[in-house]
Each structure stands twice: as structure tokens, then as C-alpha cells.
Amino acid sequence: MTTDCPVHWVDTPIALEAMVADCLSAEVIALDTEFERSHTFFAQPCLIQLCDGKKVYLLDPIAIPDLTPLGALLAEPGITKVLHACSEDLQLLQRTVKRLPQPLFDTQLAAALAGLGNSVGYQRLVAEVLDKSLGKAETRSNWQDRPLSSAQLQYAVDDVWYLHQLYYALVKLLAAQGRTQWVLNDGAALCAEYQVTTDLTNYYRQIKQAWRLYPRELAILQALATWREQQLLARDIPRNHLLGDQLLWQIARRKPRYKAQLATIKGIKSSVIKRDGDTILNCVRQGMVIKEENLPERLPKPLPPSSKRYVKKGKQWLAVKAEALQIPVEVLMPKKPFQAIIRSGLYDNVFRWSMDEDNWRYHCFGQELVAYLNEIKQGLVS
């Protein structure tokens, strides 16, 4: 190993319990995962690495199917969990451990808020901040193999050993700018948003063109999408191996009553109709009988042409602010909340802040941005 630290291989339930007990005394835990994804819906966990700054633990989820004891560590509020570009890690941990790591410090986000650039890769960030060169050769190696090669083990250990050091280096940069809490706030928001988006009954809202559907059709789409997501969980297959999003949309739009009508929708496999046709038609019927007052509301339309002036002016204003703060504009103001601000001004006649007012963006620039857009609307700014 290039790192001079004790390394513990954790491959029994007793060893897992001991690891959790040891780590609960830490202030900061660096965490990473290695996984395989091929013809399955879920990423298959192959290795979970943790570092408390003194030791590295290599947790073998292949040998320990029940990882729920790790949840006590992930949920401990007094321990900061450090990950890098963590969206896939969150998905894996939510499914296998049933918990998300909180408080969460994402080093990729931290680098952006510290002025080091947007979406900086881990190896590059370690090189720039810690002056250490890490190899990439094992990134796409087969992590399901046992035993792991010495090169894989070195890669796995280095990953979290330097991630732990990276945390303290980034905190020093952020503290000098008063931005450390910004990273933790965004980490909490990411976990909260992830919990909403993983609610199976909400998936229909993510389907492209769903905004075109009327409430009755949306009710059908919701029933179909909820059933489809449940089946993916049970069968562990990719979405397109059952029914892709656009096929669900077509079914909701056309409302078939019989298998023969279902078969006329281009792209639906005959094997799917044979196995799941009755259930699919039942989802359609389920959406058709919902009372009017219980139907889902129509989803927001894309911004209309009348928004172009406000979008352009708002983006120009944000670009100036981002340059002044040395923060990538994509991080300063994410796309969805920006569009929500624009939409509020078009339909409510007053531009309103779209995120929680506890969010650091509101106090940093949000009030100024909304005031500027309202001045444009009132003709006070050309």
C-alpha cells in the first residue's frame, strides 16, 4: 500500500459490528463504494471503504449481505461523512443500508464552492489540493472478483485515505471564505431531495413530456410508473427490459382496455404483454376510476417564449455574481430552482424565491436576484 495506515478487512457480521463501534468515536468518516452494474436495475455493491483518519476499513458486502448495522454510523449526527460526487453512492447506500449519510460533505461540491472549478474529478482534486498522484487503472476493474488484486486493494485504500485528508484541506479553504456550512446545507438538501425522488409514487413526474398529459392521464401514468418501479425492484432488471418511460407515456395517453389494443402500441414486446398485460390494463383501469378531486395536478409546462427576456437577463446577472464569488454558475444557481423563479413571475406577476429561505443562496444573492427580475418586470430596468 502507498498509504502508511492499518487496513482492516471486514467480512463477517461480528467484524462489521466492531467496525461501526470503532468509527462511532470519530469526528469525520471518509466513505466510498465500488460496484458493478451490467444487466441489472441496481448497482451491485462490491466494496465499501471507510476511513476515520487512523485506519481504513474495507467492507465486503458480498460476504455480508445484511449491511443495516452500518446505518447507525451513517445516521450519527455528530460524525461528518465525506464522499466525492456521491449521487451513485447515495443510491447504493439507501438500498443496501436503508440510510443516507448525514451530515454529508461532498468534496466535489466543496471544491466548486471553494473556487476550484465545477465537477472536478477526484484524482485531479487530490493532485491539486494534496499534491498526490493517484492512479485510475483500477476504476473499471472487476470488483466482484475475490480475492481482490493488490492493485485493487491499494486503489481502494488510497481512495478513502486521501479523501479524509482532502476534507480538512477543503474545510480550511472554505472556512477562510465563510462557506463551510454551505457545503453541509447542500448535502442535507441533496439527501432530502433524494428521499423524495426515490418515492416510487413520484417517479411519473420525472417522465419526459408528462406535462402534456391531462390529470386523468397522469393518474394512469402514476399507476403504471409505480407498478413498473416496484417490478424493477423485485426483478432487478433495467427499465427498458420491462417498459421504458415513453411506453408508459403512450399507454397513459391511449388508455387501452384490451390486450389487442395494448399490442398496437409500438415497442411493447409480446412477451411483456403475455406476462404483464393484465396488470398493465389494471393500472389503466385504476387511473380511470379515481375521483376527479383526487386526480394529480397537471405538471408545469416548459418555460414559454415570453420568458426568454427574463431568462437571459437573469442568467447574465448570475454570471456576474458567479464570477465575483468565484463559484461555477451551475452550482451558484441550479437550473430547476432558477426556472421556478422565472415561472413564478410569469404566472403570479411577481418573481418569488423558489428555494427554502434557510438556503445559503437566499441570503447570499437570492433577494437581490428576485428584486432585479421584478425591476425588469416593472420597467425600471431596461
Results as ranks from 00 to 15, higher is better:
D4C: 05
C5H: 06
H8R: 12
T12A: 05
A15N: 04
V20C: 04
S25R: 13
S25V: 10
A26Y: 04
I29D: 12
A30P: 03
A30M: 02
L31W: 13
F35D: 09
E36K: 02
R37K: 11
R37Q: 14
S38V: 13
H39W: 14
F41R: 07
A43E: 15
Q44H: 15
Q44K: 15
C46Y: 03
Q49F: 01
G53R: 02
L58R: 01
L59T: 09
L59M: 09
A63L: 11
A63F: 08
I64M: 03
T68K: 05
G78N: 14
I79L: 00
L83M: 12
L92E: 07
R95W: 08
R95L: 03
K98Y: 14
K98E: 13
L100E: 05
L100W: 01
Q102L: 02
F105N: 05
T107I: 10
G117A: 08
N118Y: 14
N118P: 02
N118D: 15
N118H: 14
G121T: 11
G121C: 09
Q123L: 08
R124S: 12
A127G: 05
S133Q: 14
G135A: 11
G135R: 06
R146W: 08
Q154M: 01
Q154K: 01
Y155C: 03
L163E: 06
Q165G: 13
Q165I: 07
L166R: 01
K172Q: 15
K172C: 01
L174F: 09
Q177S: 05
G178F: 07
T180F: 06
Q181R: 06
W182M: 05
W182C: 04
V183S: 03
L184Y: 00
L184V: 10
G187E: 11
L190T: 09
A192S: 13
T197P: 00
T197C: 01
T198Y: 10
T201D: 15
N202T: 12
Y204S: 04
K208P: 07
Q230K: 12
Q230I: 06
A234W: 05
L242P: 02
L243V: 09
W249K: 06
I251K: 03
R254V: 11
K255D: 11
P256R: 04
A260I: 15
G267K: 06
I268H: 04
I273V: 11
R275P: 00
R275W: 01
D276T: 11
G277V: 02
D278R: 03
I280W: 04
M288A: 13
E292K: 07
L295S: 05
P296K: 09
P296C: 13
R298N: 14
R298L: 10
P300A: 05
P302N: 04
P302Y: 11
P304H: 06
S306D: 12
K308N: 10
K313F: 15
W317F: 13
K321Y: 07
L325F: 07
Q326D: 13
I327R: 02
P328S: 12
L332D: 13
M333K: 02
P334L: 09
R343V: 01
G345Y: 07
Y347P: 01
V350G: 06
W353Y: 14
S354R: 03
D356N: 13
E357I: 13
N359W: 12
Y362S: 01
Y362Q: 07
Y362F: 08
H363P: 00
Y372Q: 09
E375V: 08
K377Q: 15
G379H: 08
S382Q: 14
